[in-house]
């Protein structure tokens, strides 16, 4: 139980997908102009990561490993992720057309969000059991969503600031991201103790 908790904290905070592993940066910069959009993106990505990781784990264990097809891993994973994204897209379009509109191109682009494939590959590398793989994927995506929401909050305030022309736009956003990453470094060492 304690191991689970530590692993989840580690995946969510210490080795945060965005701030420590630098995965999923395109959506991190792209859809964090408003908190509700970022939250929607976080939710969608959480769903995709969790579901596709479960499926990936199953395929890896029962198909790829069982028949020695390891070289097909990336292709099959992408196939699964793409399907999960398609499904999510349909669901969001049905449930919240506004969110669908706000997420725009970034929704189908979850397919190529490296955070999704990254998490799947990480848990395969880690040789985890099904439960811990699922937990790991879920915690990672929660960490992703958390950072997305925090960053969106910061950017909502940033648009109100008189940022000098030199830094206005992406530069200051990256500076903020850097400072956020610095703050998250405070967590380092938690999961290892």
């Amino acid at each position: 139980m304690k191991e689970f908790a530590l692993m989840m904290i580690g995946a969510a905070l210490v080795n945060n997908v965005i701030l420590a592993r630098f995965l999923g940066l395109c959506s991190f910069m792209g859809v964090t102009t408003r908190v509700d959009t970022a939250a929607g993106m976080g939710l969608a990505t959480t769903f995709v990561i969790t579901v596709s990781s479960m499926a990936d784990w199953a395929v890896q264990t029962y198909l790829l490993d069982a028949y020695g097809l390891g070289f097909l891993r990336t292709v099959t994973f992408i196939l699964i992720i793409a399907s999960a994204v398609q499904f999510t897209e349909m669901t969001i379009k049905k449930v919240s057309p506004t969110l669908f509109q706000m997420l725009g191109i970034y929704l189908p682009l979850i397919t190529t969000n490296c955070a999704v494939l990254g998490v799947a590959l990480l848990l395969v590398e880690g040789r985890m059991g099904f439960l811990s793989a699922t937990m790991f994927a879920f915690a990672s995506s929660v960490g992703y969503s958390l950072v997305m929401i925090i960053f969106a909050g910061l950017r909502e305030r940033l648009v109100l600031a008189d940022v000098p022309r030199l830094f206005a736009g992406p530069p200051i956003a990256f500076i903020v991201a850097g400072m956020l990453a610095m703050a998250f470094m405070g967590f380092s060492g938690i999961a290892t103790s």
Partner: peptide, 10 residues
């Protein structure tokens, strides 16, 4: 970098 007093986030 944020625009001076009152604008910084951290």
């Amino acid at each position: 970098a944020f625009g001076g007093l009152g604008q910084n986030l951290f």
